[in-house]
Computed example of a mutant assay.
Amino acid sequence: MDVHVQGTVPPNPFLGARDLFEVEHDLDLPVHVKVRDDPDERTWAGHHDDHHVLNISRQTATSAMARELALHEYAHMRRHEQSHPSHTMGMEEVLYLALTGRRVERRVLTHCYQLANHAKDIYADDITLSVAPSEKLVAFLESELARAVADQPQAPAGPEGLRMTAGADPSMTAVNAAFALALLERHDAVDADHRIYDLAHAAAEDAPNVDFDFFKRSFKSLARDPDESDYRRALVDLVRGYVDSHDTTTGPAAD
Protein backbone atom coordinates (compact mmCIF):
# COMPACT_ATOMS: atom_id res chain seq x y z
CA MET A 1 0.00 0.00 0.00
CA ASP A 2 1.66 3.20 -1.23
CA VAL A 3 1.06 6.44 0.67
CA HIS A 4 2.56 9.72 -0.58
CA VAL A 5 2.29 12.74 1.74
CA GLN A 6 2.29 16.08 -0.09
CA GLY A 7 2.99 19.12 2.05
CA THR A 8 5.15 20.17 4.96
CA VAL A 9 3.58 18.06 7.69
CA PRO A 10 5.00 15.06 9.53
CA PRO A 11 4.15 11.90 7.54
CA ASN A 12 4.10 9.68 10.65
CA PRO A 13 0.31 9.74 11.27
CA PHE A 14 -0.43 8.70 7.70
CA LEU A 15 2.24 6.02 7.61
CA GLY A 16 1.17 4.79 11.05
CA ALA A 17 -2.41 4.54 9.84
CA ARG A 18 -1.18 2.61 6.82
CA ASP A 19 0.66 0.14 9.05
CA LEU A 20 -2.49 -0.49 11.09
CA PHE A 21 -4.64 -0.77 8.01
CA GLU A 22 -2.34 -3.31 6.39
CA VAL A 23 -2.78 -5.73 9.28
CA GLU A 24 -6.00 -6.95 7.65
CA HIS A 25 -6.61 -4.85 4.53
CA ASP A 26 -4.90 -3.34 1.51
CA LEU A 27 -5.52 -0.88 -1.31
CA ASP A 28 -4.87 -1.57 -4.97
CA LEU A 29 -4.30 2.10 -5.79
CA PRO A 30 -1.78 4.49 -4.19
CA VAL A 31 -2.91 7.22 -1.80
CA HIS A 32 -1.89 10.85 -2.23
CA VAL A 33 -2.28 12.86 0.97
CA LYS A 34 -3.03 16.48 0.07
CA VAL A 35 -2.65 18.92 2.95
CA ARG A 36 -4.80 22.05 2.64
CA ASP A 37 -4.31 25.36 4.43
CA ASP A 38 -7.99 26.01 5.20
CA PRO A 39 -8.40 25.09 8.89
CA ASP A 40 -12.12 24.48 8.39
CA GLU A 41 -11.70 22.09 5.48
CA ARG A 42 -13.28 18.72 6.06
CA THR A 43 -11.24 15.56 5.79
CA TRP A 44 -12.46 13.51 2.85
CA ALA A 45 -11.38 10.94 0.30
CA GLY A 46 -11.35 11.47 -3.47
CA HIS A 47 -11.16 8.67 -5.99
CA HIS A 48 -9.51 8.62 -9.41
CA ASP A 49 -8.76 5.93 -11.96
CA ASP A 50 -5.15 5.54 -10.86
CA HIS A 51 -5.05 6.82 -7.26
CA HIS A 52 -6.98 7.98 -4.21
CA VAL A 53 -6.63 11.41 -2.59
CA LEU A 54 -6.87 12.01 1.15
CA ASN A 55 -7.73 15.70 1.56
CA ILE A 56 -6.97 17.06 5.02
CA SER A 57 -6.39 20.49 6.56
CA ARG A 58 -2.99 21.36 7.96
CA GLN A 59 -4.58 21.87 11.38
CA THR A 60 -6.14 18.41 11.35
CA ALA A 61 -3.02 16.78 9.88
CA THR A 62 -1.03 17.89 12.92
CA SER A 63 -3.72 17.09 15.49
CA ALA A 64 -3.98 14.15 17.87
CA MET A 65 -6.68 12.64 15.64
CA ALA A 66 -4.62 12.65 12.42
CA ARG A 67 -3.80 8.94 12.45
CA GLU A 68 -7.36 7.89 13.25
CA LEU A 69 -8.87 10.17 10.60
CA ALA A 70 -6.39 8.89 8.01
CA LEU A 71 -7.29 5.32 8.89
CA HIS A 72 -10.99 6.19 8.53
CA GLU A 73 -10.38 7.60 5.04
CA TYR A 74 -8.33 4.55 4.02
CA ALA A 75 -11.36 2.48 5.01
CA HIS A 76 -13.56 4.60 2.71
CA MET A 77 -11.06 3.99 -0.08
CA ARG A 78 -11.22 0.25 0.55
CA ARG A 79 -15.01 0.28 0.41
CA HIS A 80 -14.82 2.21 -2.86
CA GLU A 81 -12.44 -0.33 -4.37
CA GLN A 82 -14.78 -3.10 -3.24
CA SER A 83 -17.66 -1.34 -5.05
CA HIS A 84 -19.59 -1.55 -1.80
CA PRO A 85 -23.17 -0.29 -2.32
CA SER A 86 -22.75 2.31 0.42
CA HIS A 87 -19.97 3.91 -1.61
CA THR A 88 -21.30 3.52 -5.14
CA MET A 89 -25.06 4.07 -4.92
CA GLY A 90 -26.30 7.54 -5.81
CA MET A 91 -29.02 9.30 -3.84
CA GLU A 92 -31.24 10.25 -6.76
CA GLU A 93 -33.06 6.92 -6.95
CA VAL A 94 -33.31 6.70 -3.17
CA LEU A 95 -34.89 10.15 -2.93
CA TYR A 96 -37.28 9.36 -5.77
CA LEU A 97 -38.47 6.16 -4.09
CA ALA A 98 -38.70 7.75 -0.65
CA LEU A 99 -40.23 11.10 -1.51
CA THR A 100 -42.50 10.68 -4.52
CA GLY A 101 -45.61 12.76 -3.90
CA ARG A 102 -44.06 14.58 -0.95
CA ARG A 103 -43.21 18.27 -0.65
CA VAL A 104 -39.97 18.51 1.32
CA GLU A 105 -38.25 21.59 2.68
CA ARG A 106 -34.85 22.04 1.04
CA ARG A 107 -33.12 22.08 4.44
CA VAL A 108 -34.63 18.67 5.24
CA LEU A 109 -33.65 17.37 1.80
CA THR A 110 -30.07 18.44 2.44
CA HIS A 111 -30.09 16.55 5.72
CA CYS A 112 -31.09 13.37 3.88
CA TYR A 113 -27.65 13.34 2.29
CA GLN A 114 -26.14 13.35 5.77
CA LEU A 115 -28.09 10.18 6.53
CA ALA A 116 -26.36 8.52 3.58
CA ASN A 117 -23.01 9.85 4.80
CA HIS A 118 -23.63 8.26 8.19
CA ALA A 119 -24.42 4.93 6.56
CA LYS A 120 -21.18 5.18 4.56
CA ASP A 121 -19.31 5.92 7.78
CA ILE A 122 -20.81 2.87 9.47
CA TYR A 123 -19.38 0.64 6.77
CA ALA A 124 -16.02 2.43 6.70
CA ASP A 125 -15.67 2.16 10.47
CA ASP A 126 -16.55 -1.51 10.40
CA ILE A 127 -13.08 -1.69 8.85
CA THR A 128 -11.50 1.01 11.01
CA LEU A 129 -12.57 -0.56 14.29
CA SER A 130 -11.45 -4.01 13.18
CA VAL A 131 -7.81 -2.86 13.12
CA ALA A 132 -7.55 0.01 15.62
CA PRO A 133 -8.54 0.75 19.23
CA SER A 134 -11.78 2.66 19.71
CA GLU A 135 -10.77 5.01 22.55
CA LYS A 136 -9.95 8.07 20.42
CA LEU A 137 -13.05 7.64 18.29
CA VAL A 138 -15.23 7.42 21.40
CA ALA A 139 -13.63 10.58 22.82
CA PHE A 140 -14.03 12.39 19.49
CA LEU A 141 -17.72 11.52 19.13
CA GLU A 142 -18.37 12.45 22.75
CA SER A 143 -16.66 15.82 22.33
CA GLU A 144 -18.47 16.68 19.10
CA LEU A 145 -21.83 15.67 20.50
CA ALA A 146 -21.24 17.68 23.68
CA ARG A 147 -20.53 20.80 21.62
CA ALA A 148 -23.62 20.30 19.50
CA VAL A 149 -25.91 19.77 22.49
CA ALA A 150 -24.52 22.81 24.30
CA ASP A 151 -25.23 25.32 21.52
CA GLN A 152 -28.42 26.53 19.91
CA PRO A 153 -28.77 26.66 16.11
CA GLN A 154 -26.88 29.60 14.62
CA ALA A 155 -27.07 29.03 10.86
CA PRO A 156 -28.80 26.89 8.25
CA ALA A 157 -27.22 23.74 6.90
CA GLY A 158 -24.40 24.04 4.42
CA PRO A 159 -24.33 22.23 1.10
CA GLU A 160 -22.82 19.09 2.63
CA GLY A 161 -25.19 18.91 5.61
CA LEU A 162 -24.32 19.43 9.24
CA ARG A 163 -21.60 17.91 11.32
CA MET A 164 -21.92 17.35 15.08
CA THR A 165 -20.53 20.79 15.84
CA ALA A 166 -21.58 24.00 17.58
CA GLY A 167 -24.79 25.54 16.30
CA ALA A 168 -26.09 22.24 14.93
CA ASP A 169 -29.74 21.81 13.98
CA PRO A 170 -31.50 19.97 16.86
CA SER A 171 -33.14 17.38 14.60
CA MET A 172 -29.90 16.56 12.82
CA THR A 173 -28.01 16.55 16.12
CA ALA A 174 -30.43 13.90 17.42
CA VAL A 175 -29.80 11.80 14.32
CA ASN A 176 -26.05 12.33 14.68
CA ALA A 177 -26.27 11.16 18.28
CA ALA A 178 -28.21 8.07 17.20
CA PHE A 179 -25.52 7.36 14.61
CA ALA A 180 -22.73 7.76 17.16
CA LEU A 181 -24.33 5.36 19.64
CA ALA A 182 -25.22 2.90 16.87
CA LEU A 183 -21.63 2.80 15.65
CA LEU A 184 -20.18 2.37 19.12
CA GLU A 185 -22.72 -0.25 20.18
CA ARG A 186 -22.21 -2.13 16.91
CA HIS A 187 -18.62 -2.65 18.01
CA ASP A 188 -19.17 -2.92 21.78
CA ALA A 189 -17.01 0.17 22.20
CA VAL A 190 -18.78 1.79 25.20
CA ASP A 191 -20.20 0.69 28.52
CA ALA A 192 -23.84 1.38 29.34
CA ASP A 193 -22.90 4.10 31.87
CA HIS A 194 -20.70 6.10 29.47
CA ARG A 195 -21.36 9.86 29.42
CA ILE A 196 -22.18 9.79 25.70
CA TYR A 197 -25.52 8.19 26.61
CA ASP A 198 -26.46 11.23 28.70
CA LEU A 199 -25.47 13.52 25.82
CA ALA A 200 -27.48 11.47 23.35
CA HIS A 201 -30.49 11.57 25.69
CA ALA A 202 -30.21 15.36 25.84
CA ALA A 203 -30.00 15.56 22.04
CA ALA A 204 -33.09 13.37 21.71
CA GLU A 205 -35.03 15.56 24.18
CA ASP A 206 -34.11 18.67 22.18
CA ALA A 207 -35.73 17.11 19.09
CA PRO A 208 -38.90 15.31 20.27
CA ASN A 209 -40.11 15.11 16.67
CA VAL A 210 -37.25 12.72 15.81
CA ASP A 211 -37.65 9.01 16.57
CA PHE A 212 -34.21 8.59 18.14
CA ASP A 213 -34.60 4.86 18.79
CA PHE A 214 -35.59 4.22 15.17
CA PHE A 215 -32.44 5.89 13.84
CA LYS A 216 -30.14 4.21 16.33
CA ARG A 217 -31.65 0.83 15.58
CA SER A 218 -31.52 1.42 11.82
CA PHE A 219 -27.86 2.46 11.76
CA LYS A 220 -26.80 -0.26 14.18
CA SER A 221 -28.55 -3.04 12.26
CA LEU A 222 -27.28 -2.17 8.78
CA ALA A 223 -26.51 -5.51 7.11
CA ARG A 224 -22.81 -6.35 7.24
CA ASP A 225 -22.67 -7.38 3.59
CA PRO A 226 -25.71 -5.92 1.82
CA ASP A 227 -26.55 -6.21 -1.84
CA GLU A 228 -27.77 -3.12 -3.69
CA SER A 229 -31.41 -3.92 -3.05
CA ASP A 230 -30.89 -4.33 0.70
CA TYR A 231 -28.90 -1.14 0.94
CA ARG A 232 -31.34 0.89 -1.16
CA ARG A 233 -34.20 -0.27 1.05
CA ALA A 234 -32.29 0.73 4.20
CA LEU A 235 -31.61 4.24 2.85
CA VAL A 236 -35.21 4.68 1.74
CA ASP A 237 -36.38 3.79 5.24
CA LEU A 238 -33.93 6.26 6.80
CA VAL A 239 -34.97 9.08 4.47
CA ARG A 240 -38.68 8.45 5.03
CA GLY A 241 -38.14 8.30 8.77
CA TYR A 242 -36.39 11.66 8.78
CA VAL A 243 -38.84 13.38 6.44
CA ASP A 244 -41.77 12.04 8.47
CA SER A 245 -40.31 13.76 11.53
CA HIS A 246 -40.79 17.16 9.85
CA ASP A 247 -43.86 18.98 8.63
CA THR A 248 -44.54 17.89 5.07
CA THR A 249 -47.46 18.01 2.71
CA THR A 250 -48.34 16.12 -0.43
CA GLY A 251 -47.17 17.59 -3.69
CA PRO A 252 -44.06 17.66 -5.85
CA ALA A 253 -40.81 17.08 -4.00
CA ALA A 254 -38.05 19.65 -3.88
CA ASP A 255 -35.57 19.54 -6.76
Rank of each mutant, 00 (worst) to 15 (best):
30 P>A: 08
49 D>T: 15
10 P>K: 08
218 S>P: 03
179 F>D: 02
192 A>H: 05
2 D>I: 15
65 M>E: 09
105 E>D: 13
183 L>T: 01
209 N>G: 06
102 R>E: 10
131 V>R: 03
62 T>P: 03
172 M>N: 08
21 F>S: 00
221 S>W: 11
213 D>K: 06
106 R>Q: 10
196 I>D: 00
34 K>D: 14
37 D>N: 13
191 D>K: 09
230 D>M: 14
21 F>L: 00
118 H>A: 05
211 D>A: 07
5 V>C: 07
35 V>H: 03
144 E>Q: 14
182 A>S: 02
20 L>T: 08
102 R>W: 11
89 M>T: 13
47 H>F: 15
83 S>E: 08
43 T>K: 01
25 H>I: 10
241 G>D: 10
254 A>P: 00
112 C>I: 04
221 S>N: 15
92 E>G: 08
63 S>E: 05
243 V>P: 00
69 L>S: 01
46 G>R: 07
28 D>I: 08
85 P>R: 07
223 A>S: 15
108 V>C: 02
223 A>V: 12
60 T>S: 04
208 P>Q: 08
23 V>Y: 06
156 P>V: 10
75 A>S: 10
59 Q>T: 15
24 E>Q: 13
77 M>Y: 10
23 V>E: 12
81 E>I: 12
121 D>M: 06
154 Q>F: 15
90 G>T: 05
125 D>H: 14
217 R>W: 09
46 G>K: 06
45 A>F: 08
152 Q>N: 14
172 M>K: 11
93 E>Q: 12
12 N>G: 13
205 E>C: 13
143 S>E: 15
147 R>I: 12
70 A>G: 03
240 R>Y: 14
224 R>L: 15
129 L>I: 04
124 A>E: 05
27 L>S: 09
250 T>N: 12
163 R>L: 09
96 Y>S: 11
111 H>W: 11
82 Q>F: 09
101 G>S: 12
33 V>T: 01
79 R>H: 11
69 L>A: 03
219 F>L: 04
63 S>N: 07
103 R>W: 11
241 G>C: 06
20 L>M: 11
236 V>G: 00
45 A>D: 04
252 P>A: 15
97 L>P: 01
140 F>Y: 09
240 R>F: 12
108 V>N: 00
145 L>S: 02
57 S>K: 03
120 K>Y: 12
29 L>S: 09
188 D>M: 12
100 T>L: 07
173 T>F: 10
38 D>V: 04
39 P>G: 04
178 A>W: 02
56 I>E: 04
209 N>A: 07
4 H>T: 13
203 A>D: 03
14 F>K: 00
143 S>R: 14
113 Y>I: 04
15 L>T: 05
68 E>P: 00
242 Y>H: 01
15 L>N: 06
138 V>F: 02
50 D>P: 07
102 R>N: 03
64 A>N: 10
